[in-house]
Design a protein around this nucleic acid. Structure first.
Lengths: 207, 207
DNA sequence: TTAGAATGCAAGTATCTACTTGGATAGGAG
DNA sequence: CTCCTATCCAAGTAGATACTTGCATTCTAA
């Protein structure tokens, strides 16, 4: 039925083609979004025929999923590398987390598109979930370091809210003009930190 | 070419059909999302043939646009009706704005779907823009009432950031379980108010 | 009452695009 | 060299779905 075989051996040319197809897909997805992108356009961007594309991927969703998984893992890893010594203050650490995430999204704007619009495979969805969890856990851990009495579930909840704020502002960030970007970056830090800092205090005195 | 005529006279039956089609579309869009929804499914839900649907709307996008415009205007009107006397405090007014928006989205979950996923007509996009502007202006006006020295553009900027936060949390709200909803509602108020309140102070002392 | 106009649908068509087929070419292991 | 396998593509197919056609029926205005 399908010509794609996951166990097929690849030679050097094949590996390169596969990578080239992923790079081409990243370009076209970034330019046109998931739904507007056709597999023919991806093949054309990579300089191969549509049939060749299907030697390396079973279907369109698999291409989006492979890209999204790659990016999600890469980004989660970058988050994990922040302040392993625990040298940074709460504000600095969260600011660094935000910087890392924003700069990643600026380098790979198609990632956001894919995560929002594409119907990902179960394994890609899992990688996406793990990425979100990494963000949440990072913040939850820092919250509990500031205020050890805070329950795990409370800390996690506030991490999740921070993630929602992040995503809301990121939506605009990805379509903003370069000069709006710095302002939005600052707004991102303000919005998330102002939400979180009262949580670090036993008695919530703001609001 | 196309059978739809925007100037066609409608009798009572026609008006009712048109409304019934919009109601059916709301149901199906809400159930399946924009892309998964077929015009055949909308016609079936309304109990008419696909051909009848095209007597009343030129294409699928026009149906989504008509619905989105309706909702956007209705919601903007509801926002405009908040505290016309100016009797509420800043916190109360913003809280009320949030309540109004959240309850509207709970009653019409398909609105969010349409605004996010559907390719709207220019006029529907304009109505959507006006709705966002109403939200921003409401907050900007209240900010300037608290702190008259704040420039219009600064106030507007902070209103826009509040809207981004709103949308980020709303994304989760629309898919959340009923018992998470109250928690998210609280988080929504906290996140937006904690972001805005330092703006009302000349000297930003939080963060 | 009746003609014109609006409503309704069964049964399509048209198009788009993901994906396949069949066969040719290239490359590496032995 | 030689066989096996991987790579590659021209030229399709298949299936989905937005949308149309032609004609029957119902309303309504004069």
């Amino acid at each position: 039925m399908t010509v794609f075989d996951p166990n097929r051996k690849r030679n050097a040319r094949g590996e390169q083609r596969q990578q080239a197809l992923l790079r081409a897909a990243a370009v076209v997805f970034g330019r046109s979004g998931y739904h507007q992108t056709t597999t023919n356009a991806i093949a054309a961007e990579a300089g191969v025929s549509p049939a060749t594309l299907y030697q390396f991927f079973p279907n369109k969703e698999a291409i989006a999923s492979a890209l999204a998984s790659m990016y999600a893992r890469e980004m989660a890893e970058a988050e994990g590398a922040i302040d392993p010594e625990g040298a940074l203050s709460f504000t600095e650490a969260v600011g660094e987390l935000i910087d890392v995430c924003m700069s990643f999204n600026r380098r790979h704007p198609e990632f956001h598109t894919l995560v929002v619009d594409a119907p990902l495979s179960p394994s890609a969805r899992e990688d996406k979930r793990l990425l979100g969890q990494a963000f949440v856990d990072f913040i939850a851990a820092r919250l509990r370091r500031e205020r050890p009495k805070l329950s795990r579930s409370e800390a996690s909840h506030h991490g999740q809210v921070a993630l929602m704020i992040f995503r809301g502002i990121l939506d605009e960030f990805t379509v903003a003009s370069p000069q709006s970007r710095t302002r939005l970056h600052r707004a991102m830090r303000d919005a998330i930190l102002r939400y979180l800092i009262p949580v670090t205090r036993s008695t919530i005195d703001g609001v």
